[in-house]
Design a protein around this nucleic acid. Structure first.
Lengths: 206, 206
DNA sequence: TGAACGCTGTGAAATAATTCACAACTTAAT
DNA sequence: ATTAAGTTGTGAATTATTTCACAGCGTTCA
């Protein structure tokens, strides 16, 4: 990686990777920046600039689907397997735990946590479940790198603190709270459900 | 609204609104851009610039929490109630349908759709459920403005097409697919679960 | 009374991201 | 052979966004 990739670029490249996976599955071998642009609703220039963060990757007859997918996989380290855990086994947490998209990815859900011990006992799943107070210990012992927060807002910050205590490297937060974390090496991505509805509300015509 | 608000600003303002709701609930009456900046992890300048899209809103002793919340509510039209529907009643769809955050918001989930008729019958919920082929009719009849797509990827585009046919104004898409829509007035927000994990993978140190 | 501090609002500057334009090359077709 | 069409890679230009710097006002405290 020549240098740190801007976040907007990283976000697009990540989607591009998924697009390439699909094209490859469909048997496509070559694709141009123009076509990728149409698929992704961005200009071909953006596609090319984005890809060029990994140096030359195409030829005068476009990009090879498999080669490009491979370049992205290596460049973005999608080839390394990552262990993840989910804290908060409500409906959202369970939905994520059962998310089928992980199947042929390198993301492995290795543990689920909840503060309600009764809930832990009634759930039936292949994934190991633990009470919330064991987060730091389990995260550390199993070298879990990614954590998902799907707890009520009041518990979100303390959940993050426990994950961080265990040495977590990245967090996906679904609670409507801005997680405070002074360690800049820990990446945090937020998804605020209600905010998305509100943003749409503001965007659409009256 | 003096003019179209840039999307990054809109996204921050939407979060700011949630922050203000919390501060108000906690009994806080005044707050400065410096404090809001700390809470939201942005610079005070950004806070002030963002707020200024609605003209002057503060005084020399900071912002009034309730006044500012009100200004945003009016400016972003969070005060108008919006009807929404969810298509795809798998785990994710059901989790969103039961999301408690809608309670004191102006978002009303007015319908759920699924292509599996059996599933519709076994689900027990207060929200009206319909088979997927009725999407255009129901959306039109009930004047539903917002649609959530939580169907498998193969069905995502045709689901979007049906919503659009019914006159939907905004879409939140959870399927790992880039929805094609030639009407620029229809707003689309995507949330790609696996992408979020992959972005974290790329962001964190090896 | 007045000095010091803290605040917002905002034009200007700086930075970041996107888009453009075109050289250089390949392929296909005539 | 030659022309035409299509492609990438990339420096430059443009546009968008964020940050800075400070005027101007109010409040507090000496």
């Amino acid at each position: 990686m020549k240098q740190s990739i801007p976040l907007p670029v990283l976000e697009r490249l990540s989607i591009l990777y998924t697009v390439l996976e699909r094209l490859e599955k469909e048997g496509r071998t070559a694709v141009s920046s123009a076509e990728l642009g149409r698929i992704m609703n961005v200009t071909p220039h953006t596609i090319r600039k984005d890809i060029n963060y990994f140096g030359q990757a195409g030829s005068e007859s476009g990009y090879s689907v498999s080669t490009l997918r491979n370049t992205l996989e290596k460049g973005l380290r999608f080839d390394v397997s990552r262990k993840a855990c989910i804290v908060g086994l409500g409906r959202m947490g369970l939905a994520l735990m059962n998310f089928s998209g992980f199947k042929d990815s390198n993301i492995r859900i290795e543990a689920g946590f909840d503060s309600n011990i009764n809930r832990l006992e009634t759930l039936k799943t292949d994934i190991e479940l633990y009470p919330a107070y064991e987060i730091p210990e389990v995260v550390k012992r199993k070298s879990i790198e990614l954590g998902v927060i799907t707890v009520p807002p009041e518990a979100a910050q303390q959940t993050a603190d426990k994950l961080i205590q265990g040495g977590i490297k990245g967090i996906i937060n679904f609670a409507p709270v801005i997680i405070q974390c002074d360690n800049p090496a820990i990446a945090i991505r937020n998804f605020y459900v209600l905010e998305e509805f509100r943003i749409l509300s503001a965007l659409i015509q009256i």
